[in-house]
């Protein structure tokens, strides 16, 4: 975790930059550093942080701390953290109805991977996906990585409006659209869960969590849809201790 440098993004923000690659271990470190800095009392003047895939943007108050002092103190924090990073993982189960009415690209992605639709669903649900960061839309999680066999590139022309809850693939990434949005992802299905609620805007998952999709039928979709909107659906969250791989 020593291969990094700092870049001054603006007068009052500093960017910690790791090599431009998708790496769960490195991103986990970035997430934990972000959480530490967001709540630290050790360093005065940090106003907010934004983790990226391989970067951490640190905004600070110039009237409280200067860039050089901040950089020295950050380096100290990073060295401390490297020895204390723990590997408890949170896995959140997300139900998905892989029905062609919800997943108009099921056949295209199955063809891309030389698979049947049933095999495609099996492949998409058999592993967990790491949330590298939240951004783009309220509650939008950047997750990866799907097997190469089904890592189909985005549509050449994005669709104008994808329904909230749409689940899809864009290259090695997979994810869901929390609100109605234009989008070019290859859609495989839809989750009945309410992924974003302006009345209760905090996301139900965070960067650093893992998502596990499981397949449900149309009947379950309708039931969970109703239950979740009546606050009667309990999201299944598991803990596991393990190495990030």
């Amino acid at each position: 975790m020593t291969d990094y440098h700092f870049f001054q993004l603006s007068e009052s923000s500093l960017m910690l930059i790791y090599p431009n690659k998708i790496d769960v271990r490195e991103n986990t470190f970035i997430q934990q550093l972000a959480q530490t800095l967001q709540h630290t009392t050790e360093i005065s003047g940090i106003t907010s942080v934004i983790p990226g895939y391989a970067t951490l943007t640190i905004n600070f108050d110039l009237l409280q701390i200067d860039q050089a002092t901040l950089q020295t103190q950050l380096t100290k924090q990073m060295n401390l953290l490297e020895t204390t990073v723990t590997a408890t993982q949170r896995i959140i189960d997300i139900p998905v109805c892989y029905d062609e009415a919800f997943g108009p690209d099921l056949q295209a992605v199955a063809d891309f991977g030389h698979l049947t639709i049933a095999d495609l669903i099996h492949l998409h649900t058999q592993q967990t996906y790491f949330i590298f960061m939240l951004g783009f839309l309220p509650g939008f999680a950047y997750m990866g990585s799907v097997p190469d066999q089904i890592a189909m590139p985005r549509l050449a022309t994005p669709r104008k409006a994808l329904a909230a809850g749409s689940v899809g693939i864009a290259g090695k990434q997979t994810g869901f659209y929390p609100v109605v949005s234009p989008g070019g992802w290859r859609l495989l299905g839809r989750t009945p869960l309410k992924l974003y609620d302006p009345q209760n805007p905090r996301p139900r998952y965070h960067a650093g969590d893992y998502i596990h999709f499981y397949s449900i039928d149309r009947h379950d979709f309708d039931e969970i849809y109703q239950a979740d909107r009546a606050d009667a659906f309990k999201l299944q969250i598991h803990q596991r201790i393990g190495d990030h791989s």
């Binding site: 960017m15 431009n20 942080v49 970067t55 943007t57 905004n59």
Partner: peptide, 12 residues
């Protein structure tokens, strides 16, 4: 080069 998403700042 294909850039991975990074945090933004006002005025970027």
């Amino acid at each position: 080069t294909n850039l991975l998403s990074q945090g933004t700042a006002f005025g970027n």
